[in-house]
Design a protein around this nucleic acid. Sequence first.
DNA 1: CGCTCGGTTGATAAAGATCAAGTTATGTGG
DNA 2: CCACATAACTTGATCTTTATCAACCGAGCG
Lengths: 243, 243
Amino acid sequence: MAIPSLARVKCSDCPIRHRAVCARCDEDELQILESMKSYRSFAAGEAILWRGEPLSFVASLVSGVASLSKTMEDGRTQMVGLLLPSDFIGRPGRSRIEFDVTATTDVTLCCFDRKPFERLVDETPHVAQRLMELALDELDAARDWMLLLGRKSAREKIATFIEMLARRSRGTEPVPDGPIQLPMTRDQIANYLGLTLETVSRQFSALKKEGVIDFTDRRRFEVRDIIALQDATGDDADGGILS
Amino acid sequence: MAIPSLARVKCSDCPIRHRAVCARCDEDELQILESMKSYRSFAAGEAILWRGEPLSFVASLVSGVASLSKTMEDGRTQMVGLLLPSDFIGRPGRSRIEFDVTATTDVTLCCFDRKPFERLVDETPHVAQRLMELALDELDAARDWMLLLGRKSAREKIATFIEMLARRSRGTEPVPDGPIQLPMTRDQIANYLGLTLETVSRQFSALKKEGVIDFTDRRRFEVRDIIALQDATGDDADGGILS
DNA sequence: CGCTCGGTTGATAAAGATCAAGTTATGTGG
DNA sequence: CCACATAACTTGATCTTTATCAACCGAGCG
């Protein structure tokens, strides 16, 4: 069950202050958000929101990793998004969502009741603009993932996934070049990449045998050969430099 | 080459008036858009925008079909979006796009120079709100497509594609139950669905042999058995009724 | 201590890609 | 208007990749 957390972090001290939906807000606007917010925590594996369920709150992800996924009648599932700190859950103007939101690791959310938040969005261009940016970023990420799902080989998918984790944690992790934590099980990785867990395991083993990565533990690895890794992703060498 | 069209349709008579970026605008706002807009036409196959190229204009698609696609170094291509009348091209706050935009059929665009348009967005909540809705709709569509690309079989992909075309043209086509036009070649369909053109052709043939669809011509077909078609998509029978 | 869960590895099967002919349209120039 | 060229499409044979089925391993926990 979700445990409403009483711990109160001041918005100005919040770790996601400059990236979340409040990024563009000034002090006055922050005051309003401060008075509306409440924290909730979810344990790894817990459902945060179910597909189709009425959406009573929206939230910013403060810490941990959550995932968006779609499941077919026969059980096939596809992850359609990975939420990291500062990502937003919920939509202005929509009372339901079309996918499940699940806590992948232990998660803390900064929640707002939906109705008051929507009123705020209408009145606060800074919030509306930031929400727009976040939506467009998600759209770009979704499109990159479509290329991966539709056209990349298993090896390329795994390499892309690892490279993404490595790049992302360079900002977040305490030791910049140290071991990287896999925030999910092989099965969840498979659902993210459109593979089976066996194929995921085999590709990890192959990259390990080639000396590209090295596992210190089943959930923790280090990149040994970043060039070979980027090569294996199938992406342009300078991918993103133009942007 | 793009031929700047001199034909001027009044916004109030525009076929996409209530669905495009201007949907929520009142008469005064429409006046402003009217004075800023210009039409451009592109022939089937022509490039509208290249990935990475500076974005000088944004536009609404007035007629025809355009596609967004990403291409890897070795030529593998994945379509990441299909633009239909009323869809928007370009992003507020971004000077480049991360994919190619191509005219799939002959296309007419209602264009706005980017800079003035961005100023307008900042000053006109009706436009900003509509842009947000359009972006969220695209995001939902992208996520549905991720499930298709990652988890559906070739047969399910083709059935989903046909069902989507059928549903969509029910609104647009002159004869509601008549033949439906395929707006793209087998090769383009393959790039949309993450398949090869041979597999696309084979699946069409299979559905035809089973009497689910019937081709009146290579680019025109009729749905003979809608139940069997929906069955073959792999989606929930009531998919979308809840939304 | 033995169970369970997450993970690895191997053998086999199936789906779809690839390679290779052909066939049907759609032009285009004579 | 016809002959021919070309692009779009279909179909078949074969090969590759990844899924599926199955056995097993090791860490953590009741």
